[in-house]
Design a protein around this nucleic acid. Structure first.
Lengths: 219, 219
DNA sequence: GCCCTAATATGACTTCGATCATATTTGGGC
DNA sequence: GCCCAAATATGATCGAAGTCATATTAGGGC
């Protein structure tokens, strides 16, 4: 059973006895989505927590002005849904498969039961939520900075997620940085001219993260 | 004991037996701050959770470009610190007394212990965190909208906090909306001309919240 | 291999809101 | 009551980035 070992690799469950994981496992349902498919829509009843098994999922909001914004990327072995759903009856954003993706779902009601049963899980969830909240606040710090700084910020975060080669297009970066494709492309041209990144179609390679961090600080 | 009744009025503790609250109470320390004083600085060790007894506290970040931004206002009987501190060793923002304020502090380590002991508390905290996270995401939705819409958004939220008369200056609103005082004043002039608000120095009166919501939707 | 769509690229123009400057008003403290 | 600092107000200017238009390139599917 490949999926059994999957559950035990999840950070939130790491302190729960392996024998109990089998029971938890039993209620999980595996689902597959093709790139671009919706896992759930904004406003759908939030009835599951999700775990990414393979691929990447993004949380998108559609603003009144029509421009989409990517709030966050959830990579392999990460949980989502929990971040927004306790106390909320519906998903506050649109979940989209960023790549071909395999996820596991777990019923929200049962998950709340697990929190009572396992204080360690509760701790891990609270920790995860507050980490995301800190991240979110952190993003707000940059939201009034220049587009260039916001893009640098997004890139620096993505290096943590993907390593030095980021498999995303300029459009995707622009949606994460809250700008337009055109502005994003122009900014990247500048970065390439200055030699701090190189890129191919749908792929960005960072030579040295420190250079990005330094550039973010100046003027 | 006035402070004893205070603890029992806190939302997060509402499901905990009153007899246990006395013990919790014992570790709380009351502190008073004058308007403008700092409760903690960004980067201070996050060693306490806080409860507002009287007044208002704001969470501020200082961006690289020097402009301050108010992330949130915490009103009477609300908890803060928890939102950012689990798993984080330091406060990620600057806590400032928005008015003359009385707060109660509770040691972070003991609070984590309480979470294990009282699943109901754990639930309440998780719920609070995810509510704040949803709010935060919600703010991001507006951050790429026009200044007018952002200001309307801030006002609508503040009505929930203060009722129809908001005791804040245009400077304070501008810091919450991520704009300048001048632009904020100009926008308010427009609102007043159209009769959807009236105002005195440091006080904004909303005639009808629905008018704000409607205006937020157009064009 | 070819086609079509999406990604990358670049120019021209416009606009929103920041910035700077300068008044005027007002309430709290002495 | 007077003074002063902060709040409100308004004009003029500038620049970053959005918008629109148009080209070029490259990869995936048949």
């Amino acid at each position: 059973m490949a999926s059994k070992s999957f559950v035990s690799t999840l950070e939130v469950f790491k302190k729960i006895p392996v024998s109990h994981l089998i029971e938890i496992e039993r209620k999980m349902v595996e689902k597959k989505y093709a790139k671009g498919e919706s896992l759930f829509l904004e406003g759908d009843p939030a009835d599951n927590v999700w775990f990414v098994k393979e691929g990447h999922v993004k949380a998108v909001i559609h603003s009144a002005s029509g421009r989409d914004m990517t709030l966050c990327m959830i990579g392999s072995r990460n949980m989502f849904g929990s971040c927004c759903c306790f106390g909320g009856k519906t998903y506050p954003c649109h979940g989209v498969a960023e790549t071909d993706t395999t996820v596991m779902t777990y019923p929200m009601g049962d998950f709340l039961g697990l929190l009572d049963k396992y204080p360690e899980l509760s701790h891990a969830v609270v920790e995860g939520l507050s980490r995301r909240l800190r991240q979110s606040k952190d993003m707000q710090t940059f939201e009034q900075e220049s587009v260039e700084k916001r893009i640098l910020h997004v890139l620096i975060n993505l290096v943590g997620e993907f390593g030095n080669t980021i498999p995303l297009t300029r459009r995707e970066i622009s949606e994460m940085a809250g700008t337009t494709v055109e502005t994003c492309i122009r900014t990247f041209s500048g970065f390439e001219k200055d030699g701090i990144i190189s890129s191919a179609r749908g792929k960005i390679t960072i030579r040295n993260v420190q250079e990005l961090i330094d550039r973010q600080k100046v003027s």
